[in-house]
Design a binder for these strands. Sequence first.
DNA 1: AAGAATATAATTGTTGACAATTAATAATAT
DNA 2: ATATTATTAATTGTCAACAATTATATTCTT
Lengths: 225, 225
Amino acid sequence: MVKNTHSTIASNVFQQLKNEIITGAIPQGQKISEVSLSTRLGISRGPLREALRLLEAINLIERTPHSGSKVVSLSYSKIRELYQIRELMEGFATRLAASQMTRPEIDTLYRLLDSHHNQIESSGTHVYLQEEGDKDFHYYIYSKCNNQWLLDYLDNSLYQLIMMCRQQTAQIPSRADLGISEHIAIIDAISDRDPEFAEILMKRHIKGAWETVKRLIFEVDLESK
Amino acid sequence: MVKNTHSTIASNVFQQLKNEIITGAIPQGQKISEVSLSTRLGISRGPLREALRLLEAINLIERTPHSGSKVVSLSYSKIRELYQIRELMEGFATRLAASQMTRPEIDTLYRLLDSHHNQIESSGTHVYLQEEGDKDFHYYIYSKCNNQWLLDYLDNSLYQLIMMCRQQTAQIPSRADLGISEHIAIIDAISDRDPEFAEILMKRHIKGAWETVKRLIFEVDLESK
DNA sequence: AAGAATATAATTGTTGACAATTAATAATAT
DNA sequence: ATATTATTAATTGTCAACAATTATATTCTT
């Protein structure tokens, strides 16, 4: 039932390392030694190097010739630029999706939101579940944008970095409601076939997320001194 | 004087293959055999595979596990989606640049345009020179956007594909003037510190380029049957 | 003792052989 | 003759050893 046909060591290791970086198991800025990592994983350096190239391609590690790789460290300005470009691209993706989603797809989106909402209420207010639901919601929309370059960049590169930011600011419990009402408003705009408005709402939603992240970064900064 | 310090076989081969693909020396859709290519280049398969990973990262080749790599083939819809996303991102980059470029940088941009204009008039109307100048102009602007993710994506991924499109439609001589007056208008808006207008003009400019490409694709299509 | 030059160690880059998988060919059954 | 299975060939994936480069430690000079 696992879709691990066509699996290779390189791609598996890529997935594993991606998770370890995003969750912070391998901390930001850490230098990566090919020999020690490959021995830890029980593989040779060949596939590991391929995995590292893939990680570099989605901006999770930086690589300098003859010197080595290290996990990216997300400075304040990098995160700001990240949310800036996310607002632009995901806003546009939402506009495209709003003009192209079918009625059944919109219904599914409503149900998706409902189910997440119920899950959160029934199982207490687990932040983890909320964030999973948030991710699903955003993914479901931008995956309907009908532009393969946009989708590829949002899904493979931008969102990985966004997840990393969340991990970085997740120590402090975030705002209780992750913008559920905003989510509803966005779907309503899509349902009304109003792409411009859907885009505006999504951009505001992301801008709000950025404000939260910014505040958390500031608070973490205060705590550490 | 060459800045090939820190050069590796993999990165050199990457550059070479990138050029061969963009210029069409290796045609679109062609399957790539690792053994024959590595022997042709006189290297082993290791660095070639690294180069192929890099090419995959900028969307110039597609790769399927255990099957192999092939050069991407730019269908009509892919090109349309490419220009769609280029308009969005480069337009936004222009807005950012307009609000952040310094006066000396703007002056340099004016001189750049002048020098290209003179070169074209003096040496006849070489299409090649025009396109080089066009590329320089666009690069100089979006490189001032102050957003590393945006710059990275525009420069490394999108523009490589755009160059491929041009190659594809370059058999037919394109419109005589590549929009020099539009270029001037864009710089003027930047010089006037009017980011919104600069963005609008850049988006219109790119939309115009797309209309030209679309027409050329259509004509090529007619010729071939 | 401080700094520069040299030598040593550690790390990354490259290679060629081998294993695993897929594509192509030949043989067999209906 | 066609479709299906078995066999062979070709291609990609992985490994371990070697070469080239960079980082570290040591020695030497002032």
